[in-house]
Write a protein that binds this DNA or RNA. Structure first.
Lengths: 221, 221
DNA sequence: GCATGTGAATGGATTCACAGCT
DNA sequence: AGCTGTGAATCCATTCACATGC
C-alpha cells in the first residue's frame, strides 16, 4: 500500500510466531544450562521436535542473529528473545478470584520468576480477604483494584472467577488501565480495542481429548 | 488417492474446528437455559462474537442440522454436539502431581461435570499420599497408576508435575494404556503415535502478553 | 562446506457470495 | 423472504529450496 516502510512492518509478528519465540527461549535456556555455546536451527529442530525453516523464519523477524556456516550464539540469542518478549524487566500482575484456581496460580512457579511477579489476589468474599496463599501472596478486597494496580504498577490482570463474573471483571481491569489480560473463565469475552486478552479454556482442552477418544472408539483412528 | 470414499473423509476435522465446537456447545447451553428454541448462525455470530460462515462450515462437518429459512434447533444441535464431542457419557481422568496446580485442577468445576470425572490424584511424595483435595478427591501413590487406571476405567491423564518429570510421566501414562493426555508442564513432549496430547502452557500465555505490552511501550500499537 | 535468511511454492483455514431449500 | 450449505476466492502459515555470506 504505502510506498514508505511503516512501523507496522515489524508489527506483523503473528500470535503463533510469538508463542514459538517462548518455546525457543525455553530451549535456549536449557542449552545454556548445559553449557552449549552455539546451536544451529537444524539442531534445535532435532532436539526439540520443531521445524528448522520455521525457526529461522521466526527468528528473522527481529533481525539477523545467526552466523552463516555456524549457527546461533546460544546466550546472545536467548538474551535477544528475552528482550523481544519484553521480559527483561519484571512485570507485575494481579489475580482476580481467590478460589482454588486463583490460589494455585498465585503460587505457580512460572508466574513468579523470570520477568513476572504476582502482587496480590483480589476477591469480593470478605471471608477470604486478609488470608494469603501458601507462598504468602495476600488476598485483598476486590474494591481496592484501582489502588492496587496504581500503587504496584500492575500491568497484567489474571481472571480466575466464574464465567458469570468474568466480563464484569474484565471490564473493570480495562478501566483500571490494564492492557494485558489472561482469562481462565470459560466465556467468549467482549474485547476492547488495544487490550490483549489470552484465554485459557481448560474445558475446551478436555473436550478436544474426548473428541479424539470418540474417534478412536468409532474406528476412525 | 483412493477412488472410494474412506472413513477418513469425516476424519478431517481440524483441531481448530474441534475447539470451536466446544464453544458452540457452550453458547447453545446458554441459549437453551434462556429458553430459546431456535437460533441462526448469524445470531450466534452476533451474540458470541463469532463468524457466521465459519459456524455453518464447522457444523456442516457432521451433516445437515439446520433448516433453511429458519436456523438450528437449539436443543437438538446441542445434543448433537455433545454426541460428536463424545461427552454423552462420562470419561474418567487421573491427575499426576498433587501440588498446587494438581489440587486446584482436581476441584475445578469444569473437570467434574458434564462428561468428565477426576478419579484421583497420584503423587510420588509419601507425605501427600492419603490426603484428599478440598472436594475429597484422594491422593494415591504414583506406583498404583496401572491399577487405578484399570480399576476405574480411566481414559484421560492430566500431567501436573514439574517440567523435568513430565516426559517420564507421559510415557508411563501411555504405557498404562491412556490415549488422551492433558499436559500442564512447560516442555516439548516427545509424542507417541495414536496418543492425543494437548498442552496448556501458562508461561507462554504470560510471555505473549508481555510481548504485547512491549509493543505498546515501543509505540507499535 | 555449511548454515543462515528468504523468495517461491504449497497447504490450510477463513471469508465471501450465492445457489438451493423451506 | 430468509437462512443453510458450499464452491470459489482470499488470506495466512508452513515448508521447500537455494542464493548468500561466513
Amino acid at each position: 500500500m504505502s510506498p514508505v516502510p511503516t512501523s507496522s512492518d515489524r508489527d506483523v509478528v503473528s500470535e503463533l510466531t510469538t508463542g514459538r519465540l517462548s518455546v525457543y527461549l525455553r530451549c535456549l535456556t536449557f542449552l545454556e544450562l548445559q553449557g552449549q555455546k552455539t546451536v544451529s536451527s537444524a539442531e534445535l529442530a532435532d532436539r526439540f521436535h520443531l521445524n528448522s525453516a520455521q525457526i529461522r523464519k521466526d527468528l528473522a523477524c527481529f533481525g539477523e542473529f545467526g552466523t552463516r556456516g555456524v549457527g546461533y550464539d546460544v546466550s546472545q540469542l536467548k538474551q535477544q528473545l528475552v528482550q523481544e518478549l519484553g521480559i527483561d524487566r519484571t512485570r507485575n500482575a494481579v489475580i482476580i478470584g481467590a478460589g482454588n484456581l486463583g490460589m494455585a496460580l498465585a503460587d505457580y512457579a512460572g508466574f513468579n520468576a523470570n520477568g513476572f511477579h504476582i502482587v496480590a489476589l483480589l476477591d469480593i468474599d470478605p471471608v477470604k480477604v486478609g488470608r494469603t496463599s501458601r507462598q504468602g501472596i495476600p488476598v485483598l478486597a476486590y474494591e481496592q483494584l484501582d489502588d492496587v494496580v496504581r500503587r504496584n504498577r500492575v500491568e497484567i490482570g489474571i481472571i480466575a472467577v466464574t464465567a458469570t463474573a468474568a466480563q464484569i471483571v474484565h471490564d473493570a481491569l480495562v478501566a483500571a488501565g490494564l492492557r494485558a489480560i489472561l482469562n481462565f473463565a470459560p466465556v467468549q469475552l467482549r474485547l476492547h480495542e488495544g487490550v490483549k486478552v489470552k484465554s485459557v479454556d481448560l474445558r475446551i482442552n478436555l473436550e478436544s481429548l474426548s473428541f479424539h477418544l470418540k474417534k478412536v472408539e468409532d474406528g476412525m483412528t
